[in-house]
């Protein structure tokens, strides 16, 4: 059980975003991918669920190549990989409960009663009991993120991909979301990939980290390896000191 991103290249027109990025998320761990805004972090995880296809290289989930899957195989893959979007991407026209139930409606083996039970359970995990009938527009930023997580975990996926889960949140809500990410791993055994540039959050949730820089993996290691790194690019990012980066260049 792992997600392997193996030497992927991706360009949008003349903009070469990824230039051979490789990293692996191992079973039961939370891997944090760090990088500047626009460095290609979100582009990377969209490859994992087949929303984007690499120009070169490949992504494997449980050893199976995502690039070679037909549409039905992609649907099966997406049922085992939950995706938490940066701004939650909740469906405006539906209540919170209907949003959470969306993925379950595509699972024939889940009965109506079981679906309702799973929606309740997912909302309980993210502490949103009582918000079932609210519209997404009636939720705060933190509640929206939690509803997005509830929607992603309702299908009980083995993997969760978090795209900037703490961006735009206050420090308390950030800590709540980080705790939730850790609970997903500890209580549900979920393997996670978290995309972020929030270092405080990264160190709170990461078992391992990888830094994406200029389309490649600059450093991959444990939180301690990152803290002790002498690489000026890594230090500049962790400490928020652009002058180190300028010196390195």
């Amino acid at each position: 059980m792992s997600i392997e991103i193996d030497g992927i290249h991706k360009a949008f027109g003349a903009n070469q975003v990824l230039r051979g990025f490789s990293v692996e998320a191992r079973e039961g761990e939370t891997l944090v991918i760090l990088g500047h805004s626009g460095s290609g972090k979100s582009v990377t995880i969209k490859h994992v669920v087949g929303l984007l296809q690499p120009d070169e290289g490949e992504v494997r989930v449980d050893g199976e190549r995502v690039g070679g899957m037909d549409i039905e195989e992609l649907f099966s893959l997406r049922r085992k990989v939950g995706f938490v979007f940066q701004f939650a991407a909740l469906f405006d026209s539906m209540s919170v409960a209907d949003n959470v139930a969306m993925g379950l409606r595509r699972m024939k083996e889940v009965s109506d009663e079981e679906r309702e039970e799973r929606v309740r359970e997912a909302l309980r995990v993210v502490d949103l009991v009582g918000f079932e009938d609210r519209a997404p527009s009636e939720l705060s930023g933190g509640q929206r993120k939690r509803a997005g997580i509830a929607r992603a975990i309702a299908t009980r996926p083995g993997y969760l991909l978090y795209d900037e889960p703490t961006t735009g949140l206050d420090p308390i809500t950030r800590a709540v979301v980080d705790r939730l990410i850790n609970r997903m791993k500890d209580e549900l055994g979920v393997t996670g990939i978290v995309i972020t540039h929030d270092m405080e959050s990264a160190f709170r949730v990461a078992d391992r980290l990888a830094m994406l820089y200029e389309g490649k993996c600059r450093l991959e290691g444990t939180p301690d390896e990152f803290r002790n790194s002498e690489d000026p690019v890594v230090r500049a990012f962790i400490e928020g000191r652009p002058e180190l980066m300028e010196e390195a260049e």
Binding site: V49, S76, R78, F83, F85, F87, A89, M102, R151
Partner: peptide, 18 residues
């Protein structure tokens, strides 16, 4: 269009909806 720019269409795909 709003669903596209707010990633709701991507969300549909990740929930196995064409």
């Amino acid at each position: 269009g709003t669903m596209r720019v707010t990633e709701q269409i991507d969300a549909l795909e990740t929930l196995a909806y064409p």
